[in-house]
Each structure stands twice: as structure tokens, then as C-alpha cells.
Computed example of a mutant assay.
Amino acid sequence: MSDSNGNLLIVDDNKVNRLLLSRGVELLGHRAAVAENGKIAMEMLRAGAYDLLLLDIEMPEMDGFEVLEALKNDADLRDIPVIVTSSVEGLDNIVRCIELGADDYIPKPVNKVLLKARVHSCLEKKRLHDEQKRLLRRFTTVEVARDLQDSGFAIGGRRITASVLFCDIRDFTSISENMTPEATIELLNTYYTLMFEAVTSHGGIVSLMVGDGLMALFGAPQPIENSAQSAILAAHEMLNMTAMLNEERAVMEEPELKVGFGIATGKVVAGYAGTDDRATYTCVGKTVNLAARLEAHTKVAGHPILFDQETMEGLLDPDGCTPIPPVQFKGFSEKLQVFGM
């Protein structure tokens, strides 16, 4: 979106005002849609994509103040800039509009020169804000981006119950020894594309990538109904996707990829770690350490997926879970019951 082709929604119960504003907006090079009251406008905003709202105040069914309130409380719509165009006089009304989130106020009759300047300014702010969101979502997940939008950024964490999944490609170092750096990166990009899809499709987020390994969280930053079940389903999908990838690799006579998964469920401290200049969303705690130990233990346990007692208790259908002899993991005082799939 640029200031030369903005998509504007004009909301006014007066047909003449709608026509005049539409013509003025279109002469400036923008597209214009119209709504005759706030209720219709909210329906259109939820169904379409608009860059700027020109909003009247006095309207039947849902007035401009109510529209501003609704936008303010809707995470998906609150970033749409709003210019109030109204004949309602009084400083109190203007202040109320600004407090409810309006970006600007133009009295009626609307001055064309002023309208051009205010529209240009608001569209430029929208463009910059959209670019910030695009960059944020490129380097974080949608869930983390939403958490930042809703809660703001602050170094620190909170204690929650979640499921942690670790995944790793077996013997990747030896596989990559005979590959060019470009081919190695291409393989990792392909692998991560598949793994990310499996994780996100089951409500999780990938919080860490190190070489050929990754850590995924289920239940943070946003809670989900059954984090253990979601993590197990994601691991199965990741395993199946790897099998399909191996079919393609076999045709090209490339070595098979083998993966291992460790899943643990319990209390973690999740939040933003780092500094005000550079931080990441992650989690720490014994549950995280256990998931990492379980993933490493798949190399000797004979199961590609290992998980703890708490994860097993969260499964809707525990059939297929195979208990293996209790394991004494480093950093844990007692042997722990482990299950495999």
C-alpha cells in the first residue's frame, strides 16, 4: 500500500456527504467504499481490508463514538487509522474522539486541501505500521507478535503450564559433510518449512532454532486446550513429513533423514529474555531440560518420539504409548518414567 492507492472506507449517514467525500477521495487517486452507518461499517471492516476510515459521528444504529470504541477493542482492527469528519462541535467531542483512538478530526464542510494532507499523513503512518508488523512477523511467530501487540514488551516471564518439544536430525554433521554450503542451507530451509507447518498447525510456536534442531512451545504465549495432545500430534505430523521428504531424497539418491522428538509437559517460566535492545520469546525450567534430555535419549531408546508421564496423562487416546524402563537423566534426582511411540 502506498499513499497513491489507499483503500478508504467512508462512513456517513448523509448520502450527499458520502458522494462528495467519495469523489474527493477518488480525485486524490484512492479507492473509496461507503457505509451509511457504523453497524454496516464494522461489518465491512471485518470482511475487507481498508487503509483508512473517514468517520462521521452522528449516525443511526451505531454512531461514530461507538465505532471508535469497537475498533479500540478489536485487535484485528485497532490499527486502522481514523479521521473523524463531523459537524459535531465542541472541544469535548473532539477530545473524546482522540481519546477513543481517532488520528485526526476535520470539521464539516470538509476542506479539500486539508483532506488531502490529512489522508496522505494517515496513509503514510499506516504504511510504516504495516511494514513494522511485516518485519515483526518475519522474525517472530504470529502468536508472539499478537502477544507483543496485546501486552507490550517487557523483559521477564510468568509461570505457566505448557508442553515443550525438542526435535533434532540424527547425524546431520556427517550428512552435511558431503554437501556444499548452499545445499546444506537449502536442505535446512526445506526441513524447517515442514517442521514449522506441523508445529503451527497444532497451535504451537517455534521459539528456538540451533543448527538442525529446534524447540517448540505449546501453550505459550497463548494458552491452548490440551498442550500435551497438540505436541504429540505435531511430532507425529513432523515424523510423517520427514518420511515423505525422504521419499523424494531416495529418488535423488540422497541419504535418509532420521529425526528424534522429546516432549515434556509441566510448569515453565515463559517470556522475553535478553535486553531491551535484543530479546527473544522463550521458556526455561525443568520441563524444558527434561524435553531436551528425552530428545537426546531417542538415540538409544529405539523410539523416535519420547515423552514424560505428564504428557502421557494429557493424551486423549493413550493407546500406542509404550512405557520404557525408568531413566536417570542428568540434572534430575530420581529416575523418571518415560513413554515412547
Rank of each mutant, 00 (worst) to 15 (best):
M312R: 15
S333D: 15
L9K: 00
R278I: 04
E66I: 01
E66D: 13
I232Y: 14
Q222S: 15
E295D: 10
V142M: 08
M59G: 13
H30M: 10
L123C: 02
A235F: 02
F196L: 04
P81L: 05
G157F: 05
R46S: 14
L315G: 04
N178F: 02
R170S: 09
R146P: 04
I185K: 08
P318G: 12
V338P: 00
L306K: 04
L135F: 07
V284W: 11
E143S: 11
K258Y: 05
M252Q: 14
K72Q: 15
T287G: 11
D103V: 02
F261K: 07
D13Y: 00
R138W: 00
D76I: 00
E247D: 13
S230N: 14
Y105I: 06
M179W: 04
S201G: 09
L54M: 13
T140F: 13
P323V: 05
S22Y: 00
F139Q: 04
M1E: 06
G157L: 12
D63F: 08
L316R: 09
Q309W: 00
M209A: 12
V284C: 02
A33E: 07
L68C: 15
V251H: 07
E61A: 15
H236F: 07
L20M: 10
K335L: 06
H120L: 11
V338R: 05
A243G: 10
E66L: 07
M62L: 12
L217D: 10
C97E: 06
A49Y: 03
Q337F: 01
L194E: 11
I106Q: 12
E313N: 14
A154F: 02
S86K: 07
T180Y: 01
L316E: 13
R293A: 12
G29Q: 08
R293K: 11
H202T: 06
K108S: 04
L336A: 08
Y272A: 12
D276I: 03
D277M: 11
G38W: 01
L214S: 09
A296Y: 03
M244A: 13
H120W: 00
D130G: 06
I10D: 00
V34M: 10
M42L: 15
Q229S: 10
S151G: 01
I106M: 11
T173V: 03
V142A: 15
G213V: 03
E225D: 14
F65P: 03
G211M: 09
T184N: 15
K267D: 13
F139I: 11
A70T: 09
C97G: 11
Q229F: 05
S201N: 13
A154T: 10
K125G: 05
A270R: 05
M59R: 09
T275F: 08
E295L: 05
K116R: 15
G64S: 12
G271R: 07
L208H: 06
V84A: 14
H236G: 08
M195E: 07
A198M: 05
S86C: 12
K126Q: 08
P81F: 01
L188M: 13
D277G: 07
M312C: 11
K330C: 03
M215L: 13
I305S: 08
P107M: 09
D276Y: 01
P323F: 05
V25I: 12
F166A: 10
T311R: 06
R23M: 13
